[in-house]
Simulated scan of single mutants.
Amino acid sequence: MEKYNIPRGVQVFNRIADFRSWRRSILMNGQTLGYVPTMGALHAGHIGLAQQARKDADHVALTIFVNPAQFAPHEDLASYPRTLQADLNKIGELPVGTVSAVLVPQVNEVYPNGIELEVEKQVGAFVEIKGLSHQLEGGTRPHFFRGVATVVSKFFNIIQPDHAYFGQKDVQQCVCLKRLVQDLHFPIELHICPTTRESDGLAMSSRNVYLTPSQRKHALVLYKMLSSIESDYRNGERSRERLLSKAMGIYYAEEKQVAALNEGWNMKFDYLSLADPKTLNEKPEAIEGGCIASLAIFMGKARLIDNFLIDCEL
């Protein structure tokens, strides 16, 4: 492993066996472990998960691993931000003892049979979550949840945490992982923490670094669309068609503004959903009992997602 400045009180492991030895010492001391999985490029959302984990457990471990299995060949695996020293610096800004350990494993150890980006060429053991992974994000990224479920299963086995923490921004992932823990009998308490947002409402994401200043300004359209749906629902609107229509009007107005800029980039609509929080199936025309309002929009080369939980829980 390259030489990095490691924060005081934090142990950084490159090999799974070394981490497991440390984990065993925690177990032998009767202490609990909270776990925050990340792909690096840490932001305030990740830090908030670590802080919450420390409130619930004696120790906190993070993994920093850009997981190839959740990227399709045409996606941004090669360009995905890798900022390990900056990530360690952010961890070092926390009070000593907040994070005890960081595991930064190598791809060839996590995937000992290698990992191809094309599913048809992959060799080894993989995990799928049927019924919850084909819709929404799965429509655009059909490979995604297979990769997520596989790597999270691997890390749950490696880390063996008592608690694990995920952000609500990746809401379909949260629903899938709750099912994963239930169906595979992982002895882990899963915590879904609220989305961390910028002061203007934009959901924090590692992919926000891709945004130009102009794209960053127009990326607020996601928050505006979700806020419109929530506000209208709170005011008594239950028609799926009218809720979606008004939100899409906001999108089309923003898209028109972007086109008028003539800056060489475009917005592209992916999906807007009002789904059941348990099944992720679309709610019928008359929406009752709340819903997950979620959407995805391409902003230049960045694909942004966001969601609101409206009168429902995960």
Score class of each variant (00 low, 15 high):
129 I>D: 05
129 I>R: 04
130 K>Y: 11
130 K>P: 01
131 G>M: 00
132 L>G: 02
134 H>A: 14
134 H>S: 15
135 Q>T: 15
135 Q>Y: 12
136 L>G: 09
136 L>P: 02
137 E>Y: 01
138 G>I: 06
139 G>V: 09
139 G>D: 15
139 G>Q: 15
140 T>R: 15
140 T>Y: 11
142 P>I: 10
143 H>N: 12
143 H>P: 06
144 F>G: 07
145 F>A: 03
147 G>H: 05
147 G>P: 05
148 V>G: 01
149 A>R: 07
150 T>S: 08
150 T>Y: 06
150 T>G: 02
151 V>C: 00
152 V>F: 00
152 V>H: 02
153 S>D: 06
154 K>G: 05
155 F>C: 10
155 F>H: 01
157 N>Y: 06
157 N>A: 09
159 I>K: 02
160 Q>K: 15
162 D>A: 15
165 Y>Q: 06
165 Y>D: 06
166 F>Q: 09
168 Q>V: 03
169 K>D: 09
170 D>N: 03
170 D>L: 09
172 Q>W: 02
172 Q>A: 11
172 Q>E: 10
172 Q>M: 10
173 Q>T: 13
175 V>S: 10
175 V>D: 05
176 C>H: 04
176 C>S: 11
177 L>M: 08
177 L>Y: 06
178 K>M: 14
179 R>K: 12
183 D>L: 09
183 D>N: 10
183 D>C: 07
183 D>H: 07
184 L>H: 10
185 H>G: 12
185 H>E: 13
186 F>H: 03
186 F>C: 05
187 P>K: 04
187 P>L: 03
188 I>Y: 08
188 I>K: 09
191 H>L: 07
192 I>Q: 04
193 C>Q: 13
194 P>V: 06
195 T>R: 11
197 R>Y: 01
197 R>C: 01
198 E>C: 12
199 S>Y: 12
199 S>P: 10
199 S>F: 14
199 S>W: 11
200 D>S: 13
201 G>Y: 03
201 G>C: 07
203 A>F: 02
203 A>K: 00
204 M>H: 10
205 S>I: 04
205 S>D: 02
206 S>D: 08
207 R>F: 05
207 R>E: 12
208 N>A: 02
208 N>C: 03
209 V>R: 14
209 V>K: 14
210 Y>K: 09
211 L>M: 03
212 T>D: 02
212 T>H: 00
213 P>W: 10
213 P>N: 10
213 P>D: 03
214 S>R: 12
215 Q>L: 10
215 Q>I: 08
217 K>S: 14
217 K>M: 13
217 K>G: 08
218 H>P: 08
219 A>D: 01
219 A>Q: 08
220 L>F: 04
221 V>N: 00
222 L>E: 00
222 L>I: 07
223 Y>L: 12
224 K>D: 13
224 K>G: 10
225 M>A: 07
225 M>H: 06
225 M>C: 03
225 M>L: 05
226 L>H: 02
227 S>C: 08
229 I>C: 01
229 I>F: 03
231 S>P: 08
233 Y>M: 07
233 Y>R: 12
235 N>C: 13
235 N>Y: 11
235 N>P: 04
236 G>Q: 06
237 E>I: 05
239 S>M: 04
239 S>C: 00
239 S>H: 04
239 S>L: 04
